[in-house]
């Protein structure tokens, strides 16, 4: 298995880049509930560790674990070389095998940032996180949700998740077209978290019962269509405190039942960015037809402008 950094350089994934920053915006609202600097971040740092750098800088997290599938010693050496901070603990091996051994005693933010599709790999990791992670735990999952060719789409999806996990409403090739696969994957992931949570709650005492509250649901498309969803696993008795955080005041936070936030990255030039940034209206639809920017492109830019990758991204060390 070649390491996934072979696929595409992270700088060529502007939507992913924007997603990361929007995610931080949502996460930072939990500061009111718990000091995020105390959290343990567990992710798949790959070679670039962009999420690690972002979360350390923006949220002050200093306890971090990166799980890296690379089994080749040369690849592993390269990962070690690229580790951005001394405090990042590297664990080599597939997440299904290594996640269980992570120290789960503190509140954590876990980002299961797969490049593959939803399936047994994700189910096994979700089971580990829900069963072991101390609460609160922010669980984020990203999967490839590209529908692929129309013929046999349902069969492929069914094979990946198992027939008994195929949600009602997604039982045809057409229902999985465009963002259909992402919608189905979202439901499958949410169901799986619910199933695991209900088992954990049966084992837990009344005071230890936990709930899951979705906080993000992104769709984006750098090349294949991708889906990220996630939420907070928290003690049910903390519900009020979570509500007090007003997470959903963030324009990027999406509660369960609401449509996904679709990150669309307009292709604009540096000159256009500067022009639009200077003149962006406080409210109302931005209009830049004078310089040939269509209304939908202007609107896309308005939504993502704060998070738009700069020419040289500031996340570089």
């Amino acid at each position: 298995m070649p390491a996934n950094w072979e696929d595409v350089h992270y700088l060529q994934r502007p939507a992913k880049n924007i997603e990361r920053k929007m995610l931080v915006d949502v996460l930072s609202r939990l500061e009111r509930y718990r000091h995020l600097g105390e959290f343990h971040y567990i992710g798949f740092g790959s070679l670039y560790f962009v999420d690690f750098v972002t979360l350390h800088r923006r949220l002050g997290i200093t306890r971090m674990t990166s799980i890296e599938e690379a089994d080749d010693p040369v690849d592993a050496a390269r990962v070690r070389f690229n580790k951005p901070f001394r405090f990042v603990d590297l664990r080599f091996g597939h997440s299904n095998a290594t996640l269980g051994a992570v120290n789960w005693r503190r509140p954590s933010i876990v980002w299961l940032d797969y490049t593959r599709r939803v399936g047994d790999e994700a189910f096994a990791d979700i089971e580990t996180v829900v069963a072991r992670a101390a609460r609160p735990c922010v669980l984020l999952v990203t999967v490839n949700a590209d529908p692929g060719p129309a013929d046999g789409r349902l069969d492929r999806f069914r094979e990946a998740v198992g027939d008994d996990r195929v949600p009602p409403g997604f039982e045809s090739d057409a229902s999985l077209a465009r963002w259909g696969t992402a919608a189905a994957a979202h439901r499958v992931l949410t169901d799986e978290i619910d199933r695991r949570l209900s088992i954990a709650n049966q084992l837990a005492g009344a005071a230890q019962r936990t709930s899951y509250r979705q906080i993000v649901h992104f769709r984006y498309q750098d090349k294949p269509r991708m889906l990220t969803t996630g939420g907070v696993l928290h003690l049910s008795s903390d519900t009020r405190m979570i509500e007090d955080c007003r997470i959903f005041d963030s324009p990027f936070a999406v509660p369960d039942g609401e449509p996904a936030f679709e990150i669309r990255v307009p292709n604009v030039t540096t000159r256009e960015i500067q022009h639009m940034s200077q003149r962006m209206p406080k409210r109302g639809a931005p209009r830049f037809d004078r310089i040939g920017i269509r209304a939908d492109v202007a609107e896309q830019f308005r939504q993502s402008s704060r998070y738009f990758p700069a020419f040289v991204d500031a996340d570089l060390m």
Partner: peptide, 10 residues
């Protein structure tokens, strides 16, 4: 919860 709907439908 939510998963029961999928489980029952399946």
């Amino acid at each position: 919860g939510k998963a029961w709907r999928t489980d029952l439908a399946a």
